[in-house]
């Protein structure tokens, strides 16, 4: 069972405290949406969980061991990362980019390609397999990177702003696919700004909020109090409404944007 546990984790970069006393447990098979304003430390928390950085205080456990104590290969077996879209440095074919996600497995390249192709089919991008990554639109690139995560096949998936830069159709598609992964038993920690997209995950995912480096919100998607809690987190009055068969949060019109 791969769960990810942050125990009173702190991170300092120079004089700035990015995270302070963060305790969060993402149990195996759980969907946790991590919300919070810009600069709250969400991406830093994900990177700590992946072992890309060392915490300055506290303990992290990825499936029972500190991520930094594990070899990159062993980490790759436990957790996969969907980063904010970064364009690859060379115009490689999509299939090669996705095959690289199988590096940890030490398998023949033919096998890695087969798994990569299956993952591309799953995200509806099999037709892109031989295209150069430099010819892809932002949405296509993100779908291919999601295919990399699928090909890697780790039980825990850490996702950073999956909907950013995407048009609504692709946003919905990505969140639906994350929901499917969740129902297949993957644990998912999903950093997002766009709380309304959580409607497309389905079910009642857990919602936590990070503000100024500390966890200040612990709730669930369907909790009646969520609108008020989100208002506090973002510092703008949010209202819940029902529309399109689900919940929608929008900024109260009379507030006219941010309050001082």
């Amino acid at each position: 069972m791969t769960d990810l546990v942050f125990d009173r984790v702190g991170l300092r970069l120079g004089a700035r405290a990015v995270l302070e006393g963060v305790s969060l447990r993402v149990a195996a098979g759980e969907f946790v949406a991590l919300l919070g304003p810009n600069g709250a430390g969400k991406t830093s928390l994900i990177k700590l969980g992946l072992g890309l950085a060392l915490p300055s205080a506290g303990q992290i456990s990825l499936g029972g061991a500190a991520p930094r104590a594990l070899s990159p290969r062993e980490r790759a077996r436990r957790a996969a990362w969907l980063p904010q879209a970064e364009r690859p440095s060379e115009p490689v074919p999509v299939i090669e980019l996705v095959s690289s996600a199988r590096y940890f497995a030490r398998e023949p390249h033919r096998e890695a390609r087969a798994r990569a192709l299956a993952a591309l089919e799953r995200v509806g991008a099999a037709a892109l397999a031989d295209r150069s990554v430099h010819e892809l639109s932002g949405g296509e690139l993100q779908r291919c990177q999601l295919a990399s995560v699928l090909a890697q096949g780790a039980p825990l998936v850490l996702v950073d702003e999956p909907g950013s830069h995407l048009d609504p159709r692709h946003q919905v598609a990505i969140y639906r696919l994350l929901g499917e992964l969740w129902r297949e038993g993957h644990g998912i920690l999903c950093v997002t700004h766009d709380v309304n997209l959580l409607a497309h995950v389905g079910g009642d995912p857990r919602v936590v909020g990070l503000l100024d480096g500390a966890l200040t919100l612990e709730s669930r998607w369907l909790a009646p109090a969520l609108a008020g809690e989100l208002s506090q987190l973002y510092g703008v009055p949010l209202q819940a409404a029902s529309g399109g068969g689900g919940r929608v949060f929008h900024i109260s019109a009379e507030s006219n944007g941010a309050r001082p």
Binding site: R73, A76, A79, F104
Partner: peptide
């Protein structure tokens, strides 16, 4: 960083 999460030392 992505490469490291895919197992590249």
């Amino acid at each position: 960083e992505l490469a490291e999460t895919q197992g590249v030392p």
